[in-house]
Each structure stands twice: as structure tokens, then as C-alpha cells.
């Protein structure tokens, strides 16, 4: 419990972290005949930047005593991935699992997350990764902020709660921008923000006993068929780009000869000078 300036007792403030499970990119191979990535069977992991978002939230909780909850849209596999977030230090998880919501685009996904956040209750800050490495759309954070009508602080490489204020350093192209935001707001984080903690065995055990709320579309007041009808963006083909390289394999009995051939080739390319 906390106390406002006017002396009212208030509910503990809450930080919501948007976390997504994605295929482990180290498990994806390119099918040489179709040049398409083989995603089926790849291990599922929490998106790295979402883990960093969670780490930033947990550190704010350690400084300010808030509650940290995660919100995800996913499937059976998400339930398992979210255990890692709970083991890291999230207090509770909300997971939307509904077979009718499979294959939504980022716009419809954002509406699901918005409805979940509204249903889950009042919050101070929403934190998410700036990008998820699978779709690389970089849009769910700003979309959710827009739908909730709250300001956004994007590309945070530092995020702190100190003396009742939230401050962030934004990593822009030309400058670093130091900002202060009044809750409620949404913040997206970049890789430089922190190194996510590795949960202890004891915390992994405890995670299974932390509250996880599972809702379907109906429970958050949405109609699955209407969401499906709102899909605007469809990926119809995914292929690895063709590699256009010379692929000259230099072979020689002696290493000195191979190296000499390489140096003269690089000389001819003009890439050694200057």
C-alpha cells in the first residue's frame, strides 16, 4: 500500500510488461530447396528485448515496491515460456489463449493486449521490447499506447524510478534524450538497457505457484470473428535472400600460396587501400 500527497491510501501501483514467445532463431534453418526458413519445431523462447523490458520493470519494483505483471497473447507454449518471466521476478501473469485468435496481425494483436490490460486493472507503466525478432514489426508498443490513449517513451536504454518520478534515456540516432514521464505511459526498451537476470533454481520452483490468469477472447470482451475480420496485414511469403557472392574457393598446397592468391585478389578488388 502507498499513500498519496493528500493522504489517501492507494493500491500498490502496477507495472505491466508485454512479453511474447518467439521461435529461437538459433534453431531456424533455411530449407535449401525452397529458401524458406523452417520454423516448425524450433524451441520457443521469450523475445530477448521483452526479457530486458521485464528486467527493467523488476529493477523499478526493487526501487519502488510496485507489482509487476506480464501480459501475453499466445498458445499452450506461451504458458511455459511465461514461467521464466515469473521466475525472474514477475508477480503474476496474464495469458490470452484462444485457438480462434491464431494468426492475428499486429493491429488485432494490439487490440487483444489493450483489452487484457484494461481488464487486468489500473497500472502506472507498460514496458515492452522495442522489437520482437520474429516479425520485426516494431509496432505493438506504439499501437497499444495509442489504443489506451497514453503517451509513449520509445527506445529507452535507461529507465529508473527515483523519488516518485520515472525517468528514461532514449537512444535516438543523433542524440540521447533524457525524459521524464507522468504515469500512465508506455515505454519500449532497447538492448543496451540491461542484462536480464538468470533465475535461481528456487525462484524457478516458486514460479509455478505464482498466479497465472488465462483468458480467452470472450473473457476480455472481444469477439474473435470480429478481430479476424479486422486483419489488414498478411505475410504471404518468407524467403532467405539470395546470396550473391563470388564464392571463389582458394586452394593451394602451401598456406603461403593460398594467402598470396587471396592478397592479390583483394588488391584487385581495391578493398585493402586506405
Amino acid at each position: 500500500m502507498g499513500e498519496t500527497a493528500e493522504g489517501w491510501l492507494i493500491q500498490v501501483t502496477r507495472i505491466v510488461v508485454l512479453v511474447k514467445d518467439i521461435p529461437d532463431l538459433n534453431d531456424i534453418r533455411i530449407d535449401p530447396s525452397t529458401r524458406s526458413p523452417i520454423v516448425e519445431g524450433a524451441k520457443r523462447r521469450l523475445n530477448d528485448l521483452d526479457k530486458r523490458a521485464l528486467e527493467a520493470a523488476i529493477r523499478m519494483k526493487e526501487a519502488g515496491g510496485m507489482e509487476v505483471v506480464t501480459v501475453s497473447l499466445g498458445d499452450e507454449r506461451t504458458r511455459i515460456c511465461v514461467l521464466e518471466a515469473l521466475a525472474m521476478g514477475a508477480d503474476a501473469a496474464y495469458v490470452i489463449i484462444d485457438p480462434a485468435l491464431k494468426g492475428l496481425d499486429a493491429g488485432a494483436t494490439s487490440r487483444v493486449l489493450e483489452a487484457t490490460i484494461r481488464k487486468a486493472g489500473a497500472f502506472d507503466v507498460i514496458v515492452s521490447g522495442e522489437l520482437s525478432l520474429d516479425g520485426m514489426g516494431s509496432q505493438v508498443g506504439p499501437r497499444v499506447a495509442e489504443l489506451l490513449g497514453i503517451p509513449q517513451v520509445t527506445y529507452a536504454k535507461e529507465l529508473k524510478y527515483e523519488a516518485g518520478k520515472y525517468r528514461a534515456v532514449r537512444d535516438l540516432e543523433d542524440v540521447d534524450e533524457v525524459v521524464e514521464a507522468e504515469p500512465p505511459f508506455l515505454v519500449t526498451v532497447v538492448r543496451e538497457i540491461n542484462e536480464p537476470r538468470i533465475p535461481s533454481l528456487m525462484n524457478i520452483m516458486k514460479a509455478k505457484r505464482k498466479p497465472t490468469t488465462e483468458w480467452n477472447a470472450e473473457a476480455i470482451g472481444l469477439k474473435a470473428d470480429e478481430l479476424r475480420a479486422s486483419i489488414r496485414v498478411e505475410v504471404y511469403d518468407v524467403k532467405a535472400p539470395e546470396v550473391k557472392r563470388k564464392r571463389v574457393m582458394i586452394k593451394a598446397e602451401k598456406v603461403e600460396d593460398a594467402v598470396a592468391k587471396l592478397v592479390s585478389a583483394l588488391d584487385a578488388e581495391g578493398v585493402l587501400e586506405g
Binding site: P23, L25, I28, I30, S36, P37, V39, L133, D134, G135, M136, V235, D237, V238, K239, A240, P241
Partner: peptide, 8 residues
């Protein structure tokens, strides 16, 4: 997509 390994 997929970390830059593929074109969607």
C-alpha cells in the same frame, strides 16, 4: 523478418 535472415 526473423532477425534479418529472411525477407517477408
Amino acid at each position: 523478418a526473423y532477425g534479418g535472415s529472411s525477407i517477408a
